[in-house]
Simulated assay, not measured.
Amino acid sequence: MALARNEQETIVIFDVEVGNWHIDTTYPPHIRKYAEQMGEIEEQTEDRLSGWVSDDYSSSFMVKKRRKLSEEEKKKLADRLKEARLS
């Protein structure tokens, strides 16, 4: 049974002793995203994924400020994309 949207979450912890990232998520897009990158999986169901990121993957997690585009910048990017699709 799927969790209510307001109960879905992703917890990412870096364990210094292990030197690796631990991910515990109940957010469906993150379950799909991280399933193939997990090494040691502690729990995997339709509604939850919990485990350690595999040593085969380099991983870092960051937060950055979203870029705010003006209407003119949006139009320029849209025009550039349109040109690229035509060529």
Rank of each mutant, 00 (worst) to 15 (best):
A4I: 13
V18C: 07
R66M: 10
D56P: 02
R66N: 08
D56F: 11
G51P: 02
S87G: 15
F14W: 12
T10P: 02
Y27W: 09
R85H: 10
L69M: 09
E36M: 10
I41R: 07
I41D: 04
T26F: 04
S70P: 02
K76I: 10
I23D: 00
S54R: 08
D47V: 10
V18A: 10
N6Y: 13
R66Y: 08
T45P: 06
M62E: 14
Y34S: 01
T45H: 00
K75V: 11
V53C: 00
E17M: 11
S58E: 15
R66A: 09
R48W: 03
E40V: 06
E73R: 06
L86D: 15
Y57T: 10
E43M: 06
H22K: 04
R67N: 11
K65R: 15
N20T: 08
R80A: 14
L49Q: 02
I23Y: 04
G39S: 10
I23Q: 01
H30E: 03
K76T: 10
I11D: 03
G51T: 02
A4H: 15
S87P: 07
P29H: 06
M38G: 03
H30L: 06
E36C: 13
E83R: 14
K76E: 13
W52Q: 06
L86H: 14
T10I: 08
E42K: 06
S87T: 13
K76L: 14
I11K: 05
E46C: 03
Q44L: 11
E43A: 07
D24Q: 12
H30I: 04
P29Q: 05
A78G: 13
Y27H: 09
T45R: 10
Y57D: 09
R66F: 05
K64I: 11
T25F: 03
D55P: 02
M62W: 13
K76S: 07
W52V: 07
I31N: 01
A35E: 09
A84K: 14
H30N: 03
R67T: 09
G51M: 01
L86S: 15
H30M: 07
K75F: 07
M38E: 01
A84G: 11
V18N: 05
E72L: 07
T25N: 02
K33A: 07
D55Y: 02
K68W: 01
M1F: 08
M1A: 06
R48P: 00
D47Q: 12
S87W: 11
L81D: 07
D55N: 03
F61K: 10
K65G: 05
I13T: 12
I13F: 12
L77M: 15
L69N: 01
W52H: 03
V12W: 01
A4S: 15
L3V: 09
Q44P: 06
D56K: 14
V12T: 07
T45V: 06
D15T: 00
K75I: 12
